[in-house]
């Protein structure tokens, strides 16, 4: 039993290699990489969750007689900085992954660290924004603008997004440590990068639908 264990590939908890030689399978547009495919499908389902939330937001907004003016609550400058931080972090991540693929480890390390840093900055900014929002009197079930739905939806949707950023930061840090120990494949890092960019993608929609429209 001991000996067999050692034969297993690193991620094969189950005793089957993740990728038995590729020629064994019928060629398909989807078969290039199994893990990546699954990541895409996961992203679709997560995107649909946020899609449903934003659809709900729009619906509730349509059935409310009025909706608060967002510029009385949020600062355009602050919002712009938040967006820039998140979009940049996703750029850094892409550059880092590219560096990794080309074997430029120093470039990878630098940009990867900056990515995580940006994520933390974004989280801090969001926490500050929530504090500001709560300070104005907004709660899940009431707010000073007379549309309790607005603050409820705001907390729920940005909270869900923030939670995704947080998990992203944790995953990236964890993988980063594993990478330092040499225990993680390039592919896993690439997948983490996909997830990170996805979190960014969601923000693009949240920004437009909740803050700007």
């Amino acid at each position: 039993m001991e000996e067999i264990r050692r034969m297993e590939p690193i991620e094969g908890i189950h005793g089957l290699p993740e990728q038995v030689s590729a020629e064994q399978f019928a060629p398909s547009a989807f078969s290039r990489n199994r893990k990546k495919l699954m990541m895409w499908i996961f992203i679709i389902s997560d995107a649909l969750l946020f899609g449903s939330f934003l659809a709900v937001y729009t619906f509730e907004r349509f059935i409310s007689p009025s909706w608060p003016d967002r510029w009385k609550i949020f600062e355009p400058g602050y919002l712009a900085v938040m967006t820039v931080v998140l979009l940049s972090s996703s750029t850094f991540m892409a550059v880092a992954v590219e560096g990794l693929k080309q074997g430029k480890n120093r470039r990878f390390g630098f940009f990867y660290a900056v990515t995580i840093l940006c994520g933390i900055v974004f989280l801090a900014m969001q926490a500050h924004e929530w504090a500001h929002f709560i300070g104005l009197g907004a709660r899940l079930n009431t707010n000073p603008w007379g549309v309790p739905l607005f603050s409820g939806l705001f907390f729920m949707i940005t909270g869900f997004h923030g939670f995704h950023v947080l998990t992203g930061v944790l995953i990236l840090s964890f993988i980063g440590v594993l990478k330092l120990m040499g225990k993680v494949s390039d592919e896993t890092i690439e997948l983490a990068g996909m997830y990170w960019s996805f979190v960014d993608l969601v923000w693009v929609f949240i920004l437009a639908v909740i803050y700007l429209l």
Binding site: E18, Q19, R32, N33, R34, T91, E98, K101, Q102, D186
Partner: peptide, 19 residues
């Protein structure tokens, strides 16, 4: 084992594109 399942056929994107 490291490159099991990795696939480097993807074209390389230069940092310029990202910028």
């Amino acid at each position: 084992m490291e490159n099991l399942g990795s696939h480097t056929q993807e074209p390389i994107v230069s940092p310029k594109t990202f910028i």
